[in-house]
Design a protein around this nucleic acid. Structure first.
Length: 763
DNA sequence: ATGCACAAGGTTTTT
DNA sequence: CCTTGTGCAT
């Protein structure tokens, strides 16, 4: 096959490279997926490489699915044999088959962060530490960070342990790993780390895999961490046919241990590497690219470069500052409706991006109110729903009885009269006898001469499940087995007896779960329950089986997602929302330059998703759990050259929007007062805003009175605090030595001080 | 042991 | 706001 015509010169050079190391530096929208797809086709069609000898790794399931689809579109069913998976799924594949060489049985359970937190909580309690003072979630992310960074071949990780904890972190870290080991469980980091250990310690396994995957391709290489780097390096070590694709401007996962040096040093690892740069952007109009470039060029740690636009002129990006998050959502919805109407676009042409998942709710509300179909990428996963987790926990326990997390989730669910006391006794017995909690139950160990009736029941239910499980799949279909588990456990009946709207939804979701097992079983007839469970542990909501259920027209939805999730995707119309200091850049990343640079790359990713029309929005006031706070617009907006951006301001006096410096035909937007804003909506600009501002902060509504002459500050003064940085004065209370200042800091939020004791500087 | 009512406390991003 | 934990009544 000849595909010279489908590619430009550099794309063709990359796609037609066959043997040896290849580095593709692919800017946003430069057609990198296209290149990978054609390269795969070239290997198979023109160079007789068997499809199953090609391994392509990506970061998200969505990217893997997209690549698989495009390969199959191009070369037909043979494309199905190409091994295209995420890093984590690839590791599961490897560990299932070869893990036994380093003592990992194939039925291992994968612990997600919730499971990890439960383990940490147990350990904290054992160590007599209050889990409220030491948050398990913080410890889990610390552990994950250590595992990302640590030297994999060194047993001593003490360098990485924080000393800021009141307890011995090393001890906790060790018992955490021991607990996972004894439960035959691996966390997400372990999947990668254990694969490295396996490849290092089992030369036979390594060679097997090297011979299996003679050609390796890695997408988003700039986001690989140490373990991922080592895995691909080792796998490619024999034939050196490794092709990596990436863009240092789009590195957004350093918080997960991604090391940008992996891509920057590729040529050091492989001095004879062919390097191809894709610099033509086929996605966005020139104005959008200009805006993107004027942001990213502010990064110091960056190879200077500029994409070449191929699409030519278009609409300038529009920035709109709304008064609050409701106004922002209203703006977005109105734009969607008017552009749909004027340009004849579909819902699926629109995407709304935000920095944090929590921001999605208001957009959802407004979309629903206006009968616009939408789907959310990310957020609550189908398999995270309570009822699904309940059932999955039975299944996990059947597959791996050492999985204590699942054991304690299932043991009294539905209620069997097993409470905290009994669980305590099981734990103690397990500790004393040095056996697993399940073995305590299985061996019918008695506490105080008897066994609670519920426990006897639970034991016999589980034993019958073990027997039945051994019939799968030869004598019993997987789907039927799961059906039996749901009824025999009593879970189904207890939901039926509940008979509330909620319990009915749960039963429907369980039905949907059957469908997903049924489909899985049909697609993978030889597959086992173990494999199914491991696979769903890695799924994200992109494969959410409910997506199609909930919407009348699943293919025609507005897409809502975080900017992280947007990487690799493109949409004709993009809304980049919540562009405020503290939100985007997020305040947790704002205190150091690297953090800001990563946020800036994230903003760059967001902007470059847009093909034709880009809106950037911010809100002046936003409600968070602690109250309403004033938000300054994001520094990234100021970084965009004013000539590349139209400002659409919102004229409060007549409650309508106006466009300055150019306009979209017919896209003028009328802002309505909404009930949900509790009276805060339109009105004269700063006066009303300030009034509202004072009201919410004084709590009494008698605004203005709090301005106090005995203070050297007045409300809304910008101040600098040596520890907390910059902020605004919210309220001033009291007189003389008792003047109390409440300040909204950019980084840490609202704090109060007595003026007398606080070294504040007006700025 | 269970279930309900109320209080407290907590927001990054993801495999 | 929305989730999680605790206390109290059954």
């Amino acid at each position: 096959m000849d595909f010279r015509k489908q590619l430009n010169e550099t794309q063709f050079a990359a796609a037609s490279a066959v043997n040896g190391p290849l580095l593709i530096l692919a800017g946003a929208g430069s057609g990198k997926t296209r290149v990978i797809t054609y390269r795969t086709a070239n290997l198979i069609r023109n160079h007789n490489v068997p499809p199953f000898c090609i391994m392509a790794v990506t970061f998200t399931n969505k990217a893997a699915a997209e690549m698989r689809k495009r390969v199959i579109d191009l070369i037909g069913p043979a494309g199905e044999q190409v091994f295209i998976r995420t890093f984590h799924a690839s590791c599961v594949y490897i560990l299932r088959r070869y893990g036994k060489h380093i003592g990992i049985p194939s039925n291992f359970t994968i612990y997600d962060s919730k499971d990890q937190e439960s383990v940490i909580k147990e350990i904290l309690l054992d160590m007599k530490i209050d889990p409220k003072k030491q948050k398990p979630s913080a410890i889990v992310s610390k552990i994950s960070e250590i595992k990302d960074k640590a030297e994999l071949d060194s047993r001593d990780n003490s360098l990485f342990f924080p000393d800021s904890y009141s307890f011995n972190f090393a001890e906790l870290y060790e018992s955490y790993n021991e607990k996972l080991h004894s439960r035959n469980a691996l966390d997400f980091n372990d999947l990668l780390i254990k694969t490295v250990v396996l490849l290092k310690n089992s030369p036979d396994s390594l060679e097997d895999l090297q011979n299996k995957w003679k050609y390796i391709m890695v997408d988003e290489y700039q986001d690989t961490n140490k373990a991922q780097y080592l895995i691909t390096k080792m796998l490619a070590d024999k034939y050196k046919n490794i092709c990596v694709v990436g863009d240092d401007d789009q590195s957004i996962y350093s918080w997960r241990g991604a090391n940008i040096r992996n891509i920057l040093d590729f040529e050091k690892d492989y001095p004879n590497a062919l390097v191809v740069k894709l610099e033509h952007n086929y996605r966005s109009t020139a104005p959008i690219l200009n805006a993107a470039h004027s942001v990213i060029r502010n990064n110091i740690e960056r190879k200077d470069k500029q994409l070449i636009s191929t699409r030519g002129d278009g609409e300038k990006p529009v920035y709109c500052s709304a008064n609050n998050e409701y106004g922002e959502a209203e703006f977005v919805i109105n734009k969607i409706q008017s552009i749909k109407h004027d340009e004849g676009l579909n819902n699926s042409d629109f995407a709304v991006f935000y920095r944090t998942n929590a921001q999605s709710r208001i957009f959802e509300d407004y979309l629903r109110k206006n009968d616009i179909n939408y789907r959310i990428v990310g957020g609550l996963k189908f398999y995270d729903r309570k009822e699904i987790k309940d059932i999955v926990s039975y299944l996990k326990l059947i597959v791996n009885p050492f999985d204590t997390i699942s054991l304690f989730r299932s043991i009294n669910n539905p209620p069997r009269g097993i409470g905290a006391k009994t669980i305590e006794k099981i734990r103690d017995a397990a500790y004393e006898e040095q056996i697993s909690e399940w073995e305590v139950i299985d061996k019918e160990i008695q506490f105080g001469g008897k066994i609670p009736a519920g426990l006897v029941k639970f034991r016999s239910i589980m034993l019958s499940f073990f027997v039945k499980h051994s019939y799968v799949p030869e004598k019993l279909k997987l789907t039927d087995f799961v059906r039996d588990v749901i009824s025999d456990s009593g879970y189904k009946r207890s939901l039926e007896e509940e008979n509330t709207p909620e319990s009915k939804t749960r039963l429907e979701n369980i039905d949907e779960f059957f469908n997903s097992i049924f489909e899985y079983e049909n697609a993978n007839p030889e597959s086992t329950l173990e494999e199914f469970l491991q696979e769903i542990s890695l799924l994200t909501s992109e494969e959410n089986p409910l997506d199609d259920e909930n919407t009348a027209d699943p293919d025609n939805c507005v897409t809502l997602m975080t900017v992280h999730n947007a990487k690799g995707l493109e949409y004709p119309v993009v809304f980049l929302t919540g562009m405020e200091e503290g939100t985007f850049p997020h305040f947790n990343s704002s205190d150091n330059e690297e953090g800001i640079e990563e946020e800036r790359r994230l903003a760059y990713v967001g902007i470059t998703r847009a093909m034709n029309i880009l809106f950037i929005t911010s809100a002046e006031f936003r409600r968070s759990y602690s109250g309403i706070s004033y938000k300054e617009k994001s520094r990234f907006i100021d970084e965009i050259d004013p000539s590349f951006l139209n400002h659409q301001v919102y004229s409060e006096s007549n409650s309508s929007s106006q466009i300055y410096g150019g306009s979209f035909a017919g896209t003028n937007t009328v802002f309505r007062r909404t009930e949900s804003t509790a009276g805060f909506s339109a009105g004269s600009a700063s006066a009303e805003a300030k009034d509202f501002f004072n009201k919410i902060n004084s709590g009494t509504g008698d605004s203005g009175k709090k301005e106090n002459s005995s203070s050297s500050f007045s409300i809304r003064d910008r101040v600098n605090h040596p520890k907390y940085g910059n902020g605004y004065i919210l309220t001033i209370e009291g007189t003389g030595d008792n003047v109390k200042l409440t300040i909204n800091f950019n980084t840490v939020g609202v704090k109060s001080f007595l003026e007398k004791y606080t070294p504040l500087q007006k700025i």
